[in-house]
Computed example of a mutant assay.
Amino acid sequence: MSGEGPSLRERRRAETQRMIQSHAMRLFTEHGYDATTVNHVARASGVSTMTVYRHFPTKEDLVLHDRYDPLIAARVAARPADEPLVRRIGRTLVETTREVVGPAGDAPGARSAPEKDLLLARLRLMMDTPALRARHLDGQFATQKAIVDALLGDAPDPEAEFRTWVAASTCLAAMYVALMRWAHEDGRPDLPGLIAAALGDAFDDDFGDALG
Rank of each mutant, 00 (worst) to 15 (best):
M1A: 15
V166L: 06
L118V: 05
P108T: 02
K145V: 13
D209E: 12
E60N: 12
A142V: 05
R43S: 06
N39V: 07
R188Y: 14
A174M: 07
A14L: 10
A155R: 11
G187Q: 01
D117Y: 05
A78G: 12
P80L: 02
R163F: 11
A121Y: 02
A35T: 08
A104L: 12
G105D: 15
H65N: 11
S22L: 04
T37W: 04
E83W: 10
L191I: 00
G5W: 06
P84Q: 13
S22G: 07
V47E: 03
W165K: 10
L191C: 00
I89C: 00
H136D: 15
M180S: 15
R54T: 07
A113D: 15
L151W: 02
E161K: 13
L85A: 15
A198M: 09
I20C: 01
S169T: 08
I89S: 00
D186M: 06
F162M: 13
R54S: 09
F207K: 04
A142D: 12
D204G: 09
P80K: 04
A73W: 02
E95L: 09
L191P: 00
M25L: 14
A81M: 07
L85R: 10
L132H: 01
F162D: 09
L152W: 04
T143L: 14
C171P: 05
D138Q: 14
D205I: 08
L172G: 01
Y33V: 00
H40V: 01
A77M: 06
D206Q: 04
L27I: 01
T129K: 06
L120G: 00
K59W: 01
A197C: 09
F162L: 12
T29A: 06
L85I: 13
D204N: 14
R88V: 02
